[in-house]
């Protein structure tokens, strides 16, 4: 019973790294060091980290535009993530994709997506390959509450169910798609009920409880291997604006503050200390080292070369 200490440490460390990564990234924006945009998952760390950490390398994930947690959970290299954020040649996409297209095929990330719901169809294909090759692995497809209103959601869940493809559909319900509240965009409050329309199992979880998410993902993987797709909705909240520029006129400070109280990192930290698994000093040491990891990543990224225009045609086509 209970997760091993190393797993707790892994989950906690990754969540702190993710928070530090994004806080640092936000600062770089303010300093004018970054061109382009980014979508931060601060407050939602437990979702992607809980799920991705429960997978094996051979399991695939399809990430969203708000997916630093999903990638860090899958053990992506923070240096290369930061380098991509800064548009450098050493970045995951050679500086050509940016945060919204981060991918690491070596750890099973088939890429983040700039198109809301764009990863859903791709996930069915990745799972089709797994099933065709009789592999035991599964594909996790991340998407948001907003994406669940796209036609791609319907087509993908239906196909996955009809073909019993090994996909775990993970919906991060942070209550908004950009400025639009789920209250305005759908007539249901529990997105997991949508699964039943496809003859699929659907569950809804507290999206700020990293331990439970991790454990439920392990279970879900077994279920999916045996029965085909499943929908897992993680209810959480985005603390920051939608992207770089968002005056947040669509929600109240009180609402945001209420959710800040439910911080997934604070919650896990308190659990780790109260259960006696870690001392406050040990936790501080982890926090410090995570901060240092991010400083190192920024140093790596800043020292990295810019991509060269001579290489612009690389990778438009494969040989």
């Amino acid at each position: 019973m209970g997760l091993p200490k190393e797993t707790h440490e892994e989950l906690y460390t990754k969540m702190v790294q993710c928070r530090e990564f994004e806080e640092k990234a936000a600062k770089l924006f303010i300093q004018g060091k970054v061109h382009g945009t980014a979508h931060f998952c601060i407050g939602e760390e437990a979702t992607g980290i809980g799920v991705s950490s429960a997978l094996e390398v051979e399991d695939y994930i399809l990430q969203t535009h708000r997916g630093h947690n999903q990638g860090i959970g899958k053990n992506m290299d923070i240096n290369r993530m930061m380098a991509e954020f800064l548009g450098k040649e050493t970045g995951y996409c050679k500086g050509k994709g940016g945060c919204m297209h981060i991918a690491d095929f070596s750890v099973g990330s088939l890429g983040a997506n700039g198109v809301v719901g764009g990863g859903l169809p791709i996930a069915t294909g990745a799972a089709f390959s797994q099933k065709y090759k009789k592999s035991d692995n599964i594909t996790v497809c991340y998407f948001g509450d907003g994406a669940s209103n796209e036609g791609a959601f319907h087509e993908s869940l239906n196909l996955a169910a009809a073909w019993k493809l090994p996909v775990l559909f993970v919906c991060t319900n942070n209550l908004y798609g950009m400025s639009t509240s789920v209250k305005k965009s759908m007539a249901i409050s529990d997105i997991s009920v949508r699964a039943s329309g496809y003859g699929m199992k659907g569950i809804a979880l507290d999206g700020n409880d990293v331990v439970n998410i991790y454990e439920e993902t392990k279970k879900a993987k077994k279920y999916v291997q045996k029965n085909g797709p499943m929908l897992m909705v993680l209810n959480t909240y985005r603390w920051m604006g939608h992207s770089k520029s968002d005056a947040q006129l669509y929600r109240s400070k009180e609402e945001v503050n209420e959710w800040k109280e439910k911080c997934p990192i604070k919650r896990h930290r308190e659990f780790l200390i109260e259960s006696g698994m870690f001392t406050a000093e040990q936790i501080k040491a982890i926090d410090k080292s995570a901060k240092q990891d991010i400083e190192n990543a920024v140093a790596y990224a800043e020292a990295s070369p810019e991509p060269k225009i001579e290489d612009i045609f690389d990778d438009v086509y494969a040989d």
Partner: peptide
């Protein structure tokens, strides 16, 4: 049936499914 797949009438996902399968080792 394994290799010649009748699909639902879902052009978007058929195309995406092929793309995803192509990215993971098949040639659809």
């Amino acid at each position: 049936d394994d290799r010649v797949k009748d699909t639902p009438i879902s052009e978007l996902v058929i195309t995406g499914c092929a793309a995803g399968a192509a990215m993971t080792g098949l040639r659809p």
